[in-house]
Amino acid sequence: MLEIKNLTVGLPSRAESGFDTMLEDVSLSVEAGQSLGLVGEAGSGKSLLVHAIGGLLRPPVVPIGGEILFEGQDLLSMPPDDRRLILGEELSLVLPGGRIRLNPLEKVGRQIVRVLRDHHPEMAKAEALERAIQLLDRVGIPDPDKRALAYPHELSGGMAQRTVVAMALANSPRFIVADEPTTGIDVTIQRQILEDFAGLIREDNVGLLIVTRDLGIVAHFCDRVAVVSEGRIVENAEVRTFFKEQQHPVSQELMRATVLERQKAAEWSAAAASR
C-alpha cells in the first residue's frame, strides 16, 4: 500500500561535491491492514522520512532519489495539487508537538471542520461540526461539544495532541503515518488512541506507519519494526523475531536502553512497595 523505494534525501553540499545526505537509500513497505513501527535515536532521520512522505521537506533539503509509492502513485513526483487531494483524505499524517500543530486563532472544532470540508465541500457546515464533535469524543476528549468551541491555548497539551489525532482521523484515511502520536498524553488515553488505531487496522484494513521511541508501543501494536540510524534502515524485521534477537548493534543498544528503563521501573516499584 505504501512503498518507499531507495529514498535518498539531502541538501546541496557546501563542499560543492553534490549532496550531504540525511536519508540514504531507504526502502520500506507497509501493506493494508499492517502496521510498521519505525524506531531510532533522536536525529536519526525518522521524522525526516515522515516529512518526505507528506511532501513537507523544506528546501534546501530535497528528495534526491527514489520513490514514495502510495497505491502505486509516486508522491514525490506528483504535482502538489494532486498530492493535496490524497493527504488528509486517503493518507493522513499525525505530526508531533501537540498545541503547536493547531492554528492559535481558530476554535479547534472549526479546524477539524476545515479538514472535513476542504476535502468534501459538499458537506454541510452543521454536519461537519457534528462529525468534528464525534471525532473529539472518539479520541477521548471529555465534553467534546464544549471543547470544540475552545481555542488551542485553552486546551491542555495532551488534549491538543488528541485534537491533532482527531484531525488525522477525520476523513477516515486508509493509511496513517503517525510521528510520536501519543507523546505527552496520559498513559490511559494513549492506550485508548493506540487501540483505536489497532481497531482501524483490524476492521477497516487501514495501514499504519508509526514513528516512536517507545519499544513497548512497537511490541504491543506493530507487526513489523524498522530501525533507523544515521539516515539508513539498519534492521527491518517481524516484531516477534526482533524482540527475540536483534541483529544490528544499534537495535541491541535501543533494546538495552529500554530494558534498563524497565528494570529501573521494576526496582522503583519494588522499593515503593517495601516501604
Binding site: 541538501l11 557546501r14 550531504d20 540525511m22 536519526s44 533539503v61 508537538g97
Partner: peptide, 27 residues
C-alpha cells in the same frame, strides 16, 4: 525533536553530535 526549524538548521538534525556543533559554527 521539533520540526519547526527553518532550512538552515535542518542539516544539524540528521547529523550526529559532531555535525551539530559543526553546523552551529558554520552558522
Amino acid at each position: 525533536m521539533t520540526t519547526t526549524d527553518t532550512p538552515e538548521t535542518v542539516d544539524s538534525f540528521a547529523a550526529s553530535g559532531d555535525g551539530r556543533i559543526h553546523g552551529l559554527r558554520r552558522m
